[in-house]
Design a protein around this nucleic acid. Sequence first.
DNA 1: ATTAGCACTCGTTAATGTGGAGTGCTAACA
DNA 2: TGTTAGCACTCCACATTAACGAGTGCTAAT
Lengths: 344, 344
Amino acid sequence: MLLTDRQLLILQVIVDDFIRSAQPVGSRSLSKKEEISFSSATIRNEMADLEEMGFIEKTHTSSGRVPSEKGYRYYVDHLLSPQTLNPQDISIIQSIFAERIFEFEKIIQRSARILSEMTNYTSIVLGQDVGINKLKRIQIIPLNKETAVAILVTDTGHVENRTFSLPAALDMSELEKIVNILNEKLSGVPLEDLHDKIFKEVAMLLKQHISRYDLFLHTIAETFKMPATEKLFFAGKTNMLSQPEFHDIAKIRNLLTMIDREDWITNLIRSNQKGISVKIGSENQNSIMEDCSLITATYSAGTEKLGTIAILGPTRMEYSRVISLLQLLSHDLSAVLTKLYQYK
Amino acid sequence: MLLTDRQLLILQVIVDDFIRSAQPVGSRSLSKKEEISFSSATIRNEMADLEEMGFIEKTHTSSGRVPSEKGYRYYVDHLLSPQTLNPQDISIIQSIFAERIFEFEKIIQRSARILSEMTNYTSIVLGQDVGINKLKRIQIIPLNKETAVAILVTDTGHVENRTFSLPAALDMSELEKIVNILNEKLSGVPLEDLHDKIFKEVAMLLKQHISRYDLFLHTIAETFKMPATEKLFFAGKTNMLSQPEFHDIAKIRNLLTMIDREDWITNLIRSNQKGISVKIGSENQNSIMEDCSLITATYSAGTEKLGTIAILGPTRMEYSRVISLLQLLSHDLSAVLTKLYQYK
DNA sequence: ATTAGCACTCGTTAATGTGGAGTGCTAACA
DNA sequence: TGTTAGCACTCCACATTAACGAGTGCTAAT
């Protein structure tokens, strides 16, 4: 099942051509290409072999060939020329970081937008899990007699806030004491551990210093319970509508509905090992994604992986360009975030 | 141009039927309805008159009739029976407020979601303009030597935060002083006035107490400049894909792309007078919306209008039900928010 | 091993025909 | 005079047919 050089060439040209045109590729049009110096009949023979091996398919008996999933896979794994991005693309990516930005979310959102504009695919970014960020400071600000806002600031500058109900019996000086205790004990604790830590370490201390501490303990623990997951950022959700493979409304609706399910997307995209990953069609383990490919790249601060940046497109995707773009972006993004978060 | 009772009846039945079936309504099928006791020939005569007056249209020479925009308008203005919502709908709406919620955004987001699920249309909620909320407290929390987070809490419990660059020359005790001055001078000031107020009232005071106050003044003023607009909440963006009138991908794409333009939607929905408004087709002043109707309702806290809640659907929309739902929801929502914000 | 040639397949498009749902008009009727 | 039955007519929707062309597989010649 080793492919000859000629078969490799033909497979590559077929995939390239189909990615460009979205039309099945025939032997005659292939034979006219510069790269190809043999006749259409020869090509037909080779194509028959490639088809037998499962790399290409016909849409009907007398149609040209279309890459199969296996074909795309082989193309991505072995035939992708390490394409150099065109200088314009490079400068657009770098423009994301041109102005100084302090806020994680803004950088991320902008990255997603620009990526989707450059590619005409959908881009999705999985933000960092704020749960692992360490608490820098807690503030509690009473709004009125009954409610107050709790504000958590992490060492990365992320701010979480919750409004909660204030026990009637609590006076201001006590509240101040509580905030002091919380800051003292919880500073440096990852947000996701706050809930536990409050019961384990703060409860006792509160008991010593605050009358009716019990009224407050539960509320505060609940208030600081972290929401489940990482935040998602989208851009170009409607770009899929421009892809010729999605001329079918039912298909589009299924896909867009899926995309709107954040839990599902999070699972799809979350990735453990660093680097670029390409999932083609049914490799995504979902029938609705069978005409889609998903390319993901992780970004980090220092050595710590923060999140994932992904491009969702049709299986007929510009793999080479998208991979290059993601490589560049994830690298630059990591550099900026590393600096922003002062890793060394 | 006054319509006879019989014409009114026929118009009403045509609109009702078309809203239900999305099919042009013919004289024969009309004559079979219970409500209608005269023959198809009579109906044909009446329909010819209604068409001449512009209330209904043919899609082609020998087709049944379809309501025109004018027909819908008349239907909405005069023929809408003040329908009583079915009890199930009522209880679903009320379930939104069943559990106690303290946060504006959560209530709003949930309202939008439930509304879109109930109607199968797209629902859009325009949040309040946080600019008019009054500042309750400012906090500035240094993250490291170079950056700090500024946190603004309003009297409604809304929290805004910005990360900014800290002048090198500033020491901690000075920062504390600054925060005290800011709180003293800016407390109670609407967020949108902060920027001005800082120059008018805070600048002098800073000058007196802080060396190199100039380094900080501009940064802080910029940091507190409010972002332009009200926040938007969406639900059911893809519901439009299920409507038979949007079988055309290009149309859908235009519409969805429009919906993603927040500035545009904000302008479309923002409404000055209180109460329900129905905009049918081209009344929305935009060619992409010509097959859509938009029903908006405002919600308030006390006497103050906070925002708008809207349903976007095809012109062939269930006006009666949607209007009733919006009336109920905006009423209940206003009640909850009034309470939440402690108006009397 | 390569390629020219040819019969064959099948999708696409245009042309043609048929059935049915609907209309407008006319004449008869209560 | 308002209502209705009847009828000719229109036009969409759908199916059938035909022509075309892009493509294939196979065979035989180079």
